[in-house]
């Protein structure tokens, strides 16, 4: 009885993400199979970059060895600072700007990309301290970064991304072809 009720509320109540954000996806990032990213776009145009549930990092009980926001010798996303209402000083990112590299304990390394154009507002430092957040709450507390698209681009930046329905079709196709093989 209790369990049923629990299930009931879980299904009915839309989560914070459901209520305020639209989910956008990029599948097979840079041609790498299953490296899917999910962008949560708030109605105020702010975007949160997260791993899609289907990303390899979240599969097969992988564990995280390290997360590195230092994407090149000269550039660390950790040095990003914005000031004021206009967010002066934030690094400006293009669709394929790397945000961080995540190495799993099986030595597989994955690069997470911004997926959209915009100003980098913050990266999630909490996952450096507690990498398990990334595995347990990939679409909330385990987010990668927050990006503010230009006002005039807030609609167009998602044009190259997949909607939830389109992404589910991709997943279904993927599942079908893996069963075939």
């Amino acid at each position: 009885m209790d369990n049923e009720e629990c299930k009931d509320t879980q299904d009915k109540a839309p989560s914070v993400v459901d209520r305020y954000y639209t989910r956008w996806y990029r599948a097979d990032m840079k041609g790498k199979p299953c490296e899917d990213h999910c962008i949560l776009q708030h109605s105020n145009r702010i975007c949160v970059v997260t791993l899609a549930e289907s990303h390899p990092i979240l599969q097969n009980g992988r564990q995280i060895k390290s997360i590195n926001y230092q994407i090149s010798n000269g550039c660390s996303r950790l040095n990003n600072k914005v000031s004021g209402k206009s967010k002066r000083g934030g690094q400006f990112l293009t669709d394929f700007a790397p945000l961080c590299r995540i190495t799993c304990t099986d030595e597989n390394e994955y690069t997470i990309y911004s997926c959209i154009r915009g100003r980098l507002l913050e990266v999630n430092e909490a996952i450096l301290e507690t990498p398990s957040l990334l595995l347990q709450k990939p679409s909330t507390d385990g987010y990668i970064a927050v990006i503010l698209p230009k006002f005039e681009e807030s609609k167009s930046i998602t044009e190259n991304l997949l909607s939830r329905e389109e992404f589910e079709k991709v997943l279904a196709k993927r599942a079908a072809s893996s069963q075939l093989s």
Binding site: Y20, H42, N44, R45, I46, V48, V82, S83, G84, K85, K87, L121, E122, V146, L148
Partner: peptide
């Protein structure tokens, strides 16, 4: 409290 995401577009971080 970090500036909430819901108001971050118009307030300083």
């Amino acid at each position: 409290q970090k500036t909430p995401l819901r108001v971050l577009h118009r307030r300083a971080l």
